[in-house]
Design a protein around this nucleic acid. Structure first.
Lengths: 219, 219
DNA sequence: TAATAAAATTAGGTAAGCCTAAAAATATTT
DNA sequence: AAATATTTTTAGGCTTACCTAATTTTATTA
């Protein structure tokens, strides 16, 4: 059996592998959990001995296929739970992350499959991240960031590229949510901020930083 | 913060206090968890130091009000999750116990309240056990066991007085489920078994033992 | 390339929650 | 009430997943 701590390591390695485009140094893991480096060394040794990742001393780790499979399964659980919390229990999307972190460690394939069916096999979670299917396939999002958008075009918000609660709450204030229709009126050449209309009502400027965090598709 | 292990102890003490009508010896807890007695001694000391229960050496334990409050909250969570699994995700009632044991330890009042609302504030879980309300009030079931029923009367099954999977599966075979209408045709004086009709179809005999496990109300 | 800085590992330690073996307390039987 | 049986506790250990301090390895800069 695999422990909650082990699952969290695999999930973190999975995430960092893509972010860093390769081997994950132990320090990156320590930072991501806010724990001390030696704790990570211990744990990656254990996971390596379980063949869930490959560990090269002083270099870092890579997931094995076995480890990646588990990591993806956890990501799937996390995103399905988030979808359930927002879609069915009407939580706000900025409230669900911590809860999903707990729920993702409930051991039951059957439970997740039933939830998935109940939710109508959603492809994207409330943060806009793609939900891996039962076999671990992750459907690539064709989304771009709003920053990449063109003035004069209209986009639909399908996700957020950050887990920052601050950002989510800021967007809530602006009445921007999943599905919001964003029309780019203009781009300020000075700071690359965007003047946008939200759901056809003039809204004002979004900084380039914010625009870069908004995943959109053509509307 | 309270750990999963601690929560399980409080839940078990709560259950055993009613079953044994008073102080719970440490041995009863050891038995209920299938662990060794010394482990229990350690844990009850810790819980006593947290004022969640009162511990009299070599005598046993009783919940404090603080401890009971937590225990009831866990029972509430467990039963709401069971209800959700059966009512919404269409699990069979004999499949949900183990899952609810995991879900009950997810820390979030808000989550349970929203589930409760989503489910329409159910009063009774799929095993027929009453669901404590937000304040910990447990509505007494007015149910009797089928064994207490009278020949010639009709009853509706609202619950089961056992957590035995065997019993639940046996009832499934007989096509007896929550809501089934049971008409007592006759009682065998030899062994107190009951001849019943299930949902108006002649079914045959239920032993006194089974009848005693079926919670019913007048239909 | 040698010196220094940064990152990672080794070594030894802690708390939680379980364990076994032995001792002590309580209950039961004669 | 003494002897025996049962239950509970004490004492000391183990594993998991973390810790700090010291050392070693790797990277950077002079």
């Amino acid at each position: 059996m695999i422990s909650t701590a082990e699952e969290n390591y695999l999930k973190a390695v999975f995430k960092l592998e893509t972010e860093l485009q390769g081997t994950v140094p132990t320090g990156a893991l320590a930072q991501s959990f806010n724990i001390q480096a030696p704790s990570v060394t211990d744990m990656v040794k254990k996971l390596a001995s379980k063949k869930l990742l490959r560990y090269e001393k002083s270099k870092g780790v890579r997931l094995t296929d076995k480890g990646r499979k588990i990591a993806v399964a956890i990501v799937r659980k996390h995103r399905i739970w988030e979808t359930f919390l927002v879609q069915t229990l009407e939580f706000r999307w900025d409230e669900v992350h911590a809860l999903a972190e707990q729920l993702e460690h409930v051991h039951s394939e059957e439970l997740i499959d039933r939830l998935d069916t109940f939710l109508g096999h959603p492809k994207i979670d409330p943060h806009g991240d793609p939900i891996p299917d039962k076999n671990g396939k992750i459907q690539a999002t064709r989304a771009i960031t709003l920053k990449m958008g063109e003035p004069g075009n209209t986009y639909k918000l399908i996700g957020i590229r950050e887990d920052s609660i601050e950002l989510l709450q800021f967007l809530n204030k602006l009445k921007i949510g999943l599905g919001s229709v964003l029309f780019i009126e203009d781009r300020e050449s000075f700071d690359q901020s965007l003047r946008v209309k939200v759901d056809n009502k003039a809204q004002g400027f979004l900084s380039a930083i914010v625009a870069n965090a908004l995943l959109v598709v053509d509307a």
